[in-house]
Write a protein that binds this DNA or RNA. Structure first.
Lengths: 119, 119
DNA sequence: TGAATACTTGAACAGTTGTTCAACTATTGA
DNA sequence: TCAATAGTTGAACAACTGTTCAAGTATTCA
């Protein structure tokens, strides 16, 4: 807490001691990038609604579209985003594709966010 | 769990039973909207980097800009977004403004996200 | 085989977002 | 009072995003 003037930043710093503290706990730059990418996926109300629907059950694309009152194509596009982010899994059965949450983590992140939103 | 055909959706549903299960656990529409808004704020790497910097310490705008190698104005704009979302607090001391995390929730959400990102 | 169903995909469009630049306010200290 | 410092703000612009439409695939069933 008293080590001063260690140049971890490229520009002139006003409070070197505090900056050093801050720097010590920083995750790797690439982790922070992935973190932002993850939250970006959660940061759309259509996708959040899809994820909420999939808590505790699996649904086909048709059902999701019906529940959200949206067009099949829009849902399919968003499911692709969720799939790429590994937030949902799918299973094919004949013509229909069933989607479900990828793991419990997804539900936890939603719940934690809801806690904050509801104060 | 066997109650079927209850019309909670406006369109024709393929699997009414599963749809009913999904519907029962859905948070209020407005909470889901706020939730997406919250994650949207976390969904930018500049903002995530600022929040990470502010874990365990407070920093002035100048310091944050120096640490991230970015222009003062860009940081100020993003701090405004974080302020509006109540993710950061600030304290004025003479000419300088010190920012810090609003509460422990913010750190928890970041940590939970990092867990998922690192698998 | 051929029609119907369930979904996916790509192009196009409007709307949104993040950064920069320049100009501004507020506080300090000479 | 004047210059310097720390930060905020608004306009502008390019880049990105979500939805729609139209056309595509894959599977089923008659």
């Amino acid at each position: 807490m008293k080590e001063q003037n260690i140049p971890i930043c490229t520009e002139q710093k006003i409070h070197p001691c505090e900056i050093e503290r801050a720097g010590q706990h920083m995750p790797a730059e690439e982790d922070l990038f992935s973190l932002a990418e993850l939250f970006k996926v959660f940061g759309d109300s259509t996708r959040v609604r899809i994820l909420s629907l999939l808590c505790d059950t699996e649904l086909c694309v048709c059902d999701i579209a019906a529940c959200l009152g949206m067009n099949l194509s829009a849902i399919s596009h968003q499911l692709r985003v969720l799939k790429q982010a590994k937030l949902v899994r799918f299973r094919k059965e004949g013509k229909t594709v069933y989607y479900s949450l990828a793991d419990a983590h997804v539900e936890h992140i939603l719940a934690q966010g809801l806690d904050h939103v509801r104060e």
